[in-house]
Simulated assay, not measured.
Amino acid sequence: MTRATQPTRDGVAARPVSRVDEALRRLREEGERVTPGRRAVLETLDAAYGHLDAEAICAAVTETTPGVHRATVYRSLQALTDLGVLTHTHVPGSATIYHLTPQARQSHAHLQCTHCHRFFDLPVADLEPLRESVRSATGFEIDPCHAALLGTCVDCASSSGD
């Protein structure tokens, strides 16, 4: 994971800017408050391995920041998504998943196996030929980051004997 660095001062090496720091900077630039709930949600998602739904985020925030109420977590998720700091992806037959909004060069779509339910990240650029084809044929603009694409992963395909 690439992290930006802060400018150097007096020849002292800069420390990396964390994704949480970057998100908090964006909030402040928009004139938004940095609350304990918002910070806890951002830190939870930054530390997460994989994709988290709101329930998993609530559980983690409750563990790390006991004073933050679950309603605050849900309001924070909505506000941070509305502000573009978080990205959510709708998962068919399951809960919406959240993560910190990646930089444009790191944007990814989500693939989900309908058999084992694992998620896979796919660079958005890999879907560009499909997006262009649909755009040319119909004028429709696909948003590849908003919903998970369903299919069968290689492990499940090879174990099914097909």
Rank of each mutant, 00 (worst) to 15 (best):
E43I: 03
L130F: 11
E29H: 09
H88V: 00
L149G: 06
V41G: 12
L86Q: 07
A47C: 05
L150N: 06
Q78R: 13
E30Q: 15
E128L: 10
T96W: 01
Q103H: 03
I57C: 06
I97A: 00
E55G: 10
A60M: 05
E55D: 15
S158R: 15
V41S: 11
G31K: 15
C145F: 00
G84E: 02
Y74E: 15
G161S: 14
Y49V: 08
A54M: 09
H117R: 13
D126C: 07
S159E: 13
A137N: 04
A4L: 13
Q106N: 13
A125P: 02
V73P: 10
C116T: 08
D126Q: 14
L45R: 01
D21H: 09
V41P: 07
A79Y: 01
Y98H: 01
R135F: 05
A54K: 11
A148V: 00
Q78N: 07
A125Y: 00
H146S: 13
P7I: 03
S107Q: 15
Q6K: 13
C153D: 03
A60E: 11
A95N: 14
T5K: 05
A4M: 08
T89I: 02
S94A: 15
A109N: 03
C58K: 12
C113W: 00
T5H: 11
P144D: 12
S159K: 13
A40N: 05
A71C: 08
A13H: 09
A157T: 12
A14V: 04
E63F: 04
L80Y: 03
D143Y: 05
A60R: 12
V41Q: 11
V20K: 09
A147F: 04
Q6V: 10
A71V: 10
H146D: 13
F120V: 11
S76R: 03
E128Y: 15
I97W: 02
L100E: 01
T2Y: 12
H90D: 13
V134N: 05
E132Y: 01
F140H: 14
H108Q: 14
E29T: 12
H99L: 04
I97T: 01
T5P: 01
R33H: 06
D121S: 15
V134F: 14
H117I: 07
L80V: 12
S18M: 09
R135M: 08
H146Y: 08
T2F: 10
R28G: 00
D53S: 02
A125D: 11
P92V: 06
V154C: 04
D46M: 13
A56E: 01
C153Y: 04
P16Y: 00
E141S: 09
E22N: 02
D121V: 11
R38D: 14
C145N: 05
T64R: 14
R135V: 02
L42C: 05
L80I: 09
C153Q: 04
V85C: 02
T81R: 08
F119H: 15
A40F: 04
V124T: 15
H51S: 02
L122V: 13
T65M: 02
V34P: 06
C116V: 06
I97K: 00
E43N: 09
A157M: 06
E63P: 02
L52H: 02
E30R: 14
L27G: 07
T72M: 09
Q78V: 02
G37N: 09
C116F: 03
L149S: 08
V20Y: 03
T89S: 07
